[in-house]
Design a protein around this nucleic acid. Structure first.
Lengths: 250, 250
DNA sequence: GCGCCACAGTGGTCGGACCACCTCCGTGGT
DNA sequence: ACCACGGAGGTGGTCCGACCACTGTGGCGC
């Protein structure tokens, strides 16, 4: 639409002129990200709502589709947007689970001393969640916890054990009634993370102990005893923590 | 290198054929993200190390530069990679602060009941951090805490108060000796988040109370009393939590 | 009335071009 | 011999235009 040569000064020239306090900082993509994020923050974009097309969005912000796509991709991995092929781009429900999905990569990529820190955080949150769950858990959810506990003890398949182990803790976290906390714990217990820890831990015959600890947590929940549940959960995580501390140099 | 017409079946044809268990799931960009993440996870890419150029990377994975750029952008916002214009792409130090930077958007985008959940998490972590800090804090760091405390009380400028408030809590979190926990708290106390809460809270004359609570936390730290520090920090956050609970429908 | 298919719209991918920026090294001076 | 300057090459950042794969919906035929 405009002369091709004008593109040279597009970023520095045309944009900066219009604003005294305008922030032309960073890349255009970065600005697009902030812009969309702001739209959602201001309530202009409701959860679940569909956005204009990439092409329209790009035109609206005066950037190319490539840059806009990068911005959308960024917001997608953040769990803010969701792109459905052939349909459109939508705002997620913006619930804790959506936004904290990336949290798992932290656990996956952390190493050495960081793992201990991660477990320390998990110990604090997991024990709190257990205490809350002890006070609030419903009978049928408690039954579900019990189901995973027995299923975990009934099989030898490490894969299946891990799955039930995860479900066991997930159910407790959900019962605590704080979705945000549950989502963080979910990330802290990401599959590859647990698998990595368990691989070594399990070999040292520490398996029976894990079974006992899980049973203790379940007992506390059944007895609706928050303090006992907190202590049991803390001890459970602390065990792994202690093992890891000795393992990876602490 | 290959016939242009072959592009048609590139995604569905060539890839899926070669693998029984191979995961050709999702978009090429998604695969590229997983691939690079895996490289880092396996230690092939060390923190701080420089990656090949976008062009080489794209060629290596057999995708276009556009797609590779989207993958890089995604990993950039996750805090895993860092792109320096004109220089290259580097792996971050992969420290807690880098990886948990996105955590702030959760606080910024959360609304209603979620904010209470967020504060509940913060209360748990903040009180734990305070307790740890009480046991570990060094004299000069304690002096720094004190400095922010007095500076916060010495001015009327809301902007400056907020800055010192943030620094006050940040210093305590850092003194706890758990960078991961500190990084999470940093996100939970993101600037826009605090500003949003304070705006309303401050008006109701709850300012003097905040001052007292901060003083109580500082006293507990100076006395090296973990229990008192934990209680004071929990009470401090609980105040805001309570106010918010009544505000946004609880 | 029901099911099927063609069509238009959308995100996904690609290749190439150019710009802004950084890095490094060679040149020139002192 | 040393340092300051400057250009060349390489890198990420941006843009464009095209095409593919998928989805949704409408109309057509049965």
């Amino acid at each position: 639409m405009d002369e091709t040569g004008a593109r040279t000064g597009a970023q520095g020239g045309a944009q900066q002129a219009g604003a005294g306090a305008g922030r032309s900082r960073g890349t255009v993509t970065q600005r697009a990200i902030e812009r969309i994020k702001a739209m959602i923050g201001q309530g202009l974009l409701e959860p679940g709502q569909r956005l204009p097309t990439e092409r329209d969005l790009a035109a609206e912000l005066g950037i190319s589709r490539s840059s806009m796509r990068e911005a959308i991709r960024a917001l997608t991995v953040m769990g803010v947007l969701e792109a459905r092929h052939g349909s459109g781009i939508y705002v997620t429900r913006l619930e804790a689970g959506d936004l904290l999905e990336t949290f798992g990569v932290v656990a996956d990529l952390s190493r050495g001393p960081r793992l201990v820190e991660l477990l320390e955080v998990r110990r604090v949150l997991e024990s709190t969640a257990a205490a809350l769950a002890a006070a609030r858990i419903t009978p049928d959810r408690l039954a579900e916890v019990e189901r995973h506990l027995t299923a975990m003890n009934a099989t030898d398949d490490p894969e299946e054990i891990l799955a039930h182990d995860l479900a066991f803790h997930r159910e407790i976290a959900a019962a605590a009634g704080n979705d945000t906390m549950a989502a963080i714990l979910e990330g802290l217990s990401s599959r590859t993370f647990r698998a990595r820890v368990r691989r070594g831990c399990q070999e040292e015959g520490a398996f029976a102990r894990t079974r006992r600890e899980h049973a203790a947590i379940h007992r506390a929940l059944a007895a609706r005893d928050p303090d006992a549940a907190r202590a049991a959960a803390a001890a459970h995580v602390a065990e792994v923590e202690e093992w890891l501390r000795g393992q990876a140099g602490g």
